[in-house]
Amino acid sequence: MALILVTGASSGLGHNTASALADDGHEVVIHVRNPARITDAGDAARWKGVVIGDLADLDAIHGVARQASEFGRFDTVIHNAGVLHSPEAVTVNTIAPYMLTALMSKPARLIYLSSSMHRTGSTDLGRLAAGTASYDDSKLWVTTLALALASRWEGTSSHAVDPGWVPTRMGGAGAPDDLTAGHQTQVWLATHHDTIPHTGGYWYHQQPQPPHPAALDAEFQGHLIQALKHHTGVPLD
């Protein structure tokens, strides 16, 4: 049995991921922005706990980290929360995962939600400070963060996952990818020990794929981490 945190778990892929893990007998803590979204008492009883906070707000991110840390060291943290539109996209999709990673105890496993759209993201980190980063930028940067941590934190595996374009509220009813397959890779990475690669993978439907080359570039990884540290005032190590 593992202790697992899933962010953005009130609905969609996050809820499906958390539910699958709970069904498998794991202790699951969910993060939600608004507790009013948890309307089913039977569903709420499934969780080890709930942490609350708006990941578009830097002060609230600190609060989410404090709440989550009360549960102790997690075996796995799944950074699922995401939004599509700027200016919140870079804060929720990149800055919040960075800050939560830096502020919480190192888990055994880190999983970050990416997107195939990271391939059209920009390496211009000036967009971070300017507040002009796009969704594509934010997904390139969080993918880079995931792969950077794979080589920086011994004892912690770190992966990025493209869940596909799935029919959630964010993806839209007409999205062509399989909804169930959208969370299965996260569940698998969170609970299995025999993945190849063991760390530093970019995954789509349980298969490793080549990410944008910048995500693997050690120099860009370093620049990104420094830019996030400068922007948030939170060091990674």
Rank of each mutant, 00 (worst) to 15 (best):
S122C: 03
D124R: 01
D124Y: 03
L125R: 01
L125C: 06
R127I: 04
R127P: 00
L128T: 03
L128D: 00
A129W: 01
A129C: 01
A130F: 12
A130D: 14
G131K: 01
G131C: 02
T132Q: 02
S134G: 03
Y135A: 00
D136M: 13
D136K: 04
D136T: 14
D136N: 14
S138Y: 07
S138D: 03
K139E: 12
L140E: 04
W141S: 13
V142A: 10
V142E: 08
V142L: 13
V142R: 01
T143W: 09
T143K: 08
T144Q: 13
T144N: 07
L145R: 05
L145A: 13
L145K: 03
A146F: 06
A146G: 03
L147D: 12
A148W: 12
A148F: 14
A148M: 07
A148S: 05
L149Q: 15
L149P: 03
A150P: 15
S151V: 12
R152L: 09
R152M: 11
W153S: 05
W153C: 02
W153K: 10
T156Q: 15
T156H: 07
T156I: 04
S157W: 10
S157D: 05
S157T: 15
S157A: 15
H159C: 10
V161P: 12
P163M: 14
G164K: 00
V166R: 00
V166Q: 05
T168E: 10
R169H: 04
R169K: 14
M170R: 15
G171M: 08
G171W: 11
G172S: 15
G172A: 15
A173S: 13
G174E: 10
A175N: 12
P176N: 14
D177A: 14
D178F: 06
D178C: 14
L179C: 07
L179P: 00
L179W: 11
L179I: 12
T180M: 07
T180V: 15
G182M: 09
